[in-house]
Design a protein around this nucleic acid. Sequence first.
DNA 1: TGGCATTATGTCAAAACTGACATAGAAGGG
DNA 2: CCCTTCTATGTCAGTTTTGACATAATGCCA
Lengths: 187, 187
Amino acid sequence: MNTLSYGLLSLLSLKPCSGYDLMHQFELFWPAKHSQIYPLLSAMEKEGLVSFELVSQSDKPDKKVYTITDRGTAALKEWLEGPTGEPVMKDEMLLKTYCLWNTSPENALRMFGEREKLYEEKLGRLEAKVRMLEQVANGDPDNLEFRSHYFGIYMLLNKALSNTRSNLEWCRWARAAIGKRIHEGGG
Amino acid sequence: MNTLSYGLLSLLSLKPCSGYDLMHQFELFWPAKHSQIYPLLSAMEKEGLVSFELVSQSDKPDKKVYTITDRGTAALKEWLEGPTGEPVMKDEMLLKTYCLWNTSPENALRMFGEREKLYEEKLGRLEAKVRMLEQVANGDPDNLEFRSHYFGIYMLLNKALSNTRSNLEWCRWARAAIGKRIHEGGG
DNA sequence: TGGCATTATGTCAAAACTGACATAGAAGGG
DNA sequence: CCCTTCTATGTCAGTTTTGACATAATGCCA
């Protein structure tokens, strides 16, 4: 039982999902490939933390829908009471920024432009999720109760939105700072 | 040559450092243990990307100070021109937040309280670094030139500060949102 | 009919990373 | 004098994670 296993239980506590679904939902806060998720689910099924059901689909390939068991829920609740690991951020962009003076201002502008685009796309996807949440929450997510299955998602979306906006602003500020130095003939 | 190797070259392009120093400087943007850094530096030395010198210290144990070589600088510049990997964030707190309705509001408050403290401490460390940068930049870091060795660090500190402040605010907002629901008898 | 994207699941070798073990000099407190 | 903390470097077994390989059904476009 590692952190990713508990993450799978966390998502499954909301509703039953296929491994494929879980992988896509994970992207936001714990990126993992299918080659890691499928064997883990299989192992968790053997331990009795989750169960699965084969579901036939007419328009798509069949899938295995996993459901959390009582044992899984018990493990989940125990995990929630325990200590929480520190956040880990790994961003190649930061490593490059550190030694930015080793490249041309033009290349630096390109780098930050690409990163800006990435954050813009992420922001768009997040805003779409917020609109979806507003629909299922019947209007204002601020009225969600603590026991609502959507309360946690609402909090996560708030964090992701403010982080992404902050990062987007940073890219724009960096591009302006570099541009200013190009026109000043700084180099 | 993986991303961490280039990260080491990036830090070494600023000034020669020991492995121990590098490890501590990495904490901010690519956490790595000494058990990963020491063997990597050794391998990079064999490939001629860095060289080292044994430095005796009277007040502390001796150390190996690594310096980037011409080959290392060439590799660094090539890396800066290439594609940049997407940022990866792994945070157990987010996994727990997703299924927060499975625990008590009191435990949720504790979790966010601990996280708030963590971000407060991080903010303090960052602000200390900003003050150090202001000293070496002779006042306003906004006047740093693109070619300055400190320009990149200035940009990184800006990002880290705004991210940490954003995360701190999020923790406080979350605690208020949970507290409100406790007093409303929501549960 | 062939090619491509999406959905869907799986295996496996290799790479990245962690945690524990191991050593050791120096400083500071009790 | 012992204990702890900090500095400093190293190894290694085990865990986590990736990237490649493998298969296959469906829909869509040409």
